[in-house]
Design a protein around this nucleic acid. Structure first.
Lengths: 156, 156
DNA sequence: CTTGAAAAGAACTGCCT
DNA sequence: AGGCAGTTCTTTTCAAG
């Protein structure tokens, strides 16, 4: 496992990550052609990046609107009671809510940021009142409705 | 294109999405075995979901820490000047910053939420001062350092 | 690192229930 | 809709330069 070696990725590794980050569907052969490598060479590099843990996996990108979840809301949550037990209780309870897609523990005015999806605004109200506000230790809550979102490749 | 398909996904489609959302590596054959379908049957459903636009693509999940970006910060940004041109100017400029991974236009106290990665805190300070604060129309900025994050499958 | 080749498996197609 | 059988392509592994 801890063959953890590398912060030493060369420029070719970075190019592979850039290409795959945009489209994880690319085959080793197609990648090699694009970068001037043979198929086995590209394949070995990809495998190396996976085993080093740099590539953690591949996930589907779903269109939640088409799945009937037209509303995405970010919630900032401040805990009324802090301390180790409160954090653990809150995290356990919040991860059991299906509408919660992401739980981020952050440093700042709020303790947690939640990404919540709902079918529509009234469905969101239901989730907020019956699920979120009843979580253990919840204090202040701030809501932000997502209007649009753009993801970028990130630095490499 | 507009083979507009439907909000009518049956339970099998949902099971496919649940499985693939966790691991997009699964082959149609493996998926079929898991659900009691033949390989072509599973394959046809996956293809249908892709053509319907429910599945938008497959993305790599990278470990940014191992890539040397140990710090993730969320920035709430309030624009000083609003209006159509200001929003477009801001969005164009902000998407050109490599450290910015996500740009979310939101409704609430702040106008945008940015997800920013940096090598360390002093690298983040550089990005903040030289890149973010110099963006056109930037007013208030609030920063939240990410401590930990958990992603969940979401409702289905 | 390359090329070449072989085995396994996945993707795709057509036909039939 | 689903299954079966077959073809084609890629992935994956290995040998050798």
């Amino acid at each position: 496992m801890t063959t953890l070696s590398l912060t030493d990725l060369d420029e070719t590794d970075r190019a592979i990550l850039r290409a795959l980050a945009a489209d994880a569907t690319l085959s080793a052969g197609a990648l090699g052609r694009r970068l001037g490598l043979s198929q086995p060479a590209a394949w070995r590099r990809i495998k190396r990046l996976q085993e080093a843990g740099v590539i953690k996996g591949r996930r589907l990108v779903l269109d939640h609107e088409r799945l009937g979840f037209g509303v995405t809301v970010f919630l900032g949550v401040k805990l009324a009671t802090k301390g180790r037990v409160s954090l653990e209780d809150f995290e356990r309870a919040v991860t059991a809510i299906p509408e919660v897609q992401t739980v981020e523990h952050i440093l700042g005015l709020y303790d947690y940021r939640l990404r919540v999806v709902a079918r529509d605004i009234s469905d969101f109200e239901r989730v907020l009142r019956r699920r979120i506000m009843t979580l253990p230790g919840v204090g202040d809550v701030e809501a932000n409705v997502l209007l649009s979102e753009e993801r970028r490749p990130g630095p490499l």
